[in-house]
Design a protein around this nucleic acid. Structure first.
Lengths: 256, 256
DNA sequence: GATCGTTTTTTTGTCTTACAAATTTACAAA
DNA sequence: TTTGTAAATTTGTAAGACAAAAAAACGATC
């Protein structure tokens, strides 16, 4: 997600007496540049709906909001643009990307393929650390199902899908899925206000995690495909309703 | 690939007398900003090996080479960074991304899933314009197989895969695949110097296109998966050989 | 009163200059 | 050879400025 990927020179044929991993010593490459912070903030503002889909973002306003200079801000904007979160028309500036029903369907079709592949790979590899992370995600799932705000549920849902993406053992797959999740995060967030769907989704997530832990690649693949079929339908419904919460007369939705 | 995505307001319920499509009238949104030109040039330089994997890129040099100021250059760099073509370490500047064997395997695994999905969707949809584009790509394939430079073959190969990506009808899939192809373009280019593999690959591409045109989704999927298994193995071999052309003592490869 | 054309204003795109911070390199000393 | 220090290079960030384009406001004409 961060875009920065370092790699240390490997130490070959170096007899190691301790069991410490090299990664535990790595301190450089934390990438705390101002522009990446700005990109993170703006990304969060977009995926949480602080900036609505279709909203025009003026550079001057963003400079005041973030407190950084224009060059830094613009570099951050280019990053978000590459991630697909904003669209920039020449001489008209950045606009928060707004998805129509067709586009959401296409994104979810892609997500279905990628996430099912990740689940299958996860079930095949079953690396202990990833399994533990998945179990922890399931545990948090149980905790918030009864009484949890939509924002909390969005977070643990993201953690759950993140665990699956990581468990695939393929960083590029995980990164692609992460970017995809950012693009649909707002829709997911709105979807989570439909409590009827939540129970179904959570049950499906549990079944999926069990299939992965059991190492049943075929089942994991199928369950994930079916799950995404369902959430994709909900997502399309959300967009068709104009990004509005069900039952609420949210006039801000007109901006989209 | 360009990062800019405009959308005109749709005309609903507007009785049309002519058969012209709205897209044929769209003139805005060509995105000819300087920074996008710079990004295109740098991308091409990386893809074609003008900048070698692992090579450090100094901003000042790039400014002189491209003739633009630092702000514009840096915005272009952020875009390439998001595309994964360069990696930026804090206070050390951009470096052309260098892939090891494991990473190439992971990229090709992802490509396998995405491209097979695209082929399957293409075979399902079979839109006339896309079919025509595919046939044109096959035709060009025949022309360059006998006598063609590796660069020419890389180009038509890219056109072929581009036709498949477009034919999927999913722009996000096409964009993801396009970015992925950029990351492995140099490896593909080097692979194309192994003439023995070329005949096999080209034959496989023809079989794949026939399956798509015939509308055989299952066959298209399987052929594509098999094809990518083969080219993936070649790609790993190229990286294992240090990005060097087979048989040539290219000492520049040591930079990787 | 509505439409068209012009002018003004705002906003983006780009460049120049500048300086702080960090890294790398060079160099001297133990 | 290694270590410590200083210089030079390079990146990160900021501020100011101007041209170009788009949007908005305004006025003129039908």
């Amino acid at each position: 997600m961060n875009g920065t990927a370092d790699r240390m020179d490997e130490m070959k044929d170096d007899a190691r007496l301790d069991g410490m991993k090299d990664e535990a010593l790595l301190v450089a490459g934390q990438a705390v540049s101002l522009r990446s912070l700005v990109a993170d903030r703006l990304r969060l503002a977009i995926i949480t709906g602080r900036f609505r889909p279709g909203q025009q973002l003026r550079e001057r306003e963003l400079c005041e909001l973030t407190g950084v200079s224009r060059p830094s801000l613009r570099e951050a904007l280019r990053q978000l643009e590459a991630e697909g979160l904003i669209a920039t028309a020449p001489h008209r500036g950045p606009v928060v990307a707004a998805l129509n029903v067709e586009e959401v369907g296409q994104l979810y079709a892609l997500r279905q393929v990628l996430e099912s592949f990740a689940a299958r790979e996860f079930a095949r590899l079953r690396r202990p650390a990833d399994i533990a992370a998945l179990k922890a995600a399931v545990k948090r799932l149980d905790e918030v199902e009864k009484a949890g705000t939509p924002l909390e549920m969005l977070e643990i849902g993201t953690a759950f899908y993140g665990a699956i993406a990581t468990g695939s053992g393929n960083p590029y797959l995980a990164q692609t899925l992460g970017a995809l999740h950012n693009r649909i995060a707002l829709i997911r967030f709105i979807s989570l206000h439909r409590r009827a769907r939540i129970a179904q989704s959570f049950a499906a997530l549990r079944a999926l995690s069990e299939a992965i832990i059991a190492g049943d690649e075929t089942l994991a693949d199928r369950l994930c495909t079916e799950l995404l079929e369902a959430v994709g339908a909900t997502a399309r419904a959300v967009v068709e309703a104009g990004y509005r919460l069900p039952g609420s007369a949210d006039d801000a939705g007109l901006a989209a």
